[in-house]
């Protein structure tokens, strides 16, 4: 039984949109309990592998490059923020986001290439979706399974976050 190790993971991230996961959790908490917003506290995260001009933990959903991502983080699935896990292949075409790098104060174009050829990784689900648009605007919609354009066909595993360049 695949259960949460499935599209559910990918889909539930969509539910967790808003400005952050905690924002969504607070709102869902209100909906579920009828109470005022639960005082959800951030989970302490170890900031690992951060560099001065590329700060943050790439295994964390709050890492700056993930501002418009919707998927499992490849950093938790055997890949890295720029490479796919073994045995999967990267979709050549995908959606992009413009994310602000707090390390150097610049905005970057980020390409969220999907890794394809194995079923859902199911780890480190992350859904931030800033600027997400309906799927008739494919380049700005993260609802689409971009593995459709890959050699491994439509079988989605996880998503990367690759710098394309500095946004003008």
């Amino acid at each position: 039984m695949a259960s949460f190790d499935t599209l559910l993971e990918r889909t539930t991230r969509k539910l967790a949109r808003k400005t952050s996961r905690r924002g969504f959790l607070a709102r869902l908490g209100v909906a579920l309990t009828g109470a005022a917003a639960l005082p959800l506290l951030p989970v302490m995260r170890q900031i690992a592998l951060a560099s001065e001009n590329d700060p943050g933990d790439p295994k964390s959903c709050e890492y700056w490059r993930y501002c418009a991502i919707d998927g499992f983080l490849c950093t938790c699935c055997g890949g890295t923020k720029t490479s796919c896990p073994p045995g999967t292949v990267m979709s050549p075409i995908t959606w992009v986001g413009t994310c602000h790098n707090p390390g150097d104060g610049k905005d970057y174009i980020i390409s969220y290439n999907d890794c394809c050829g194995k079923t859902y990784c199911g780890r480190c689900q992350c859904m931030r979706d800033e600027g997400d648009r309906p799927i008739y605007d494919p380049a700005n919609s993260n609802n689409i399974n971009w593995c459709a354009g890959s050699d491994a066909d439509i079988v989605y595993n996880c998503s990367t976050a690759i710098i394309v360049g500095v946004a003008d």
Partner: peptide, 11 residues
């Protein structure tokens, strides 16, 4: 779990 920061994934 919420106030202690241990809620994790709501789902």
């Amino acid at each position: 779990l919420g106030i202690t920061g241990q809620l994790g994934d709501i789902f």
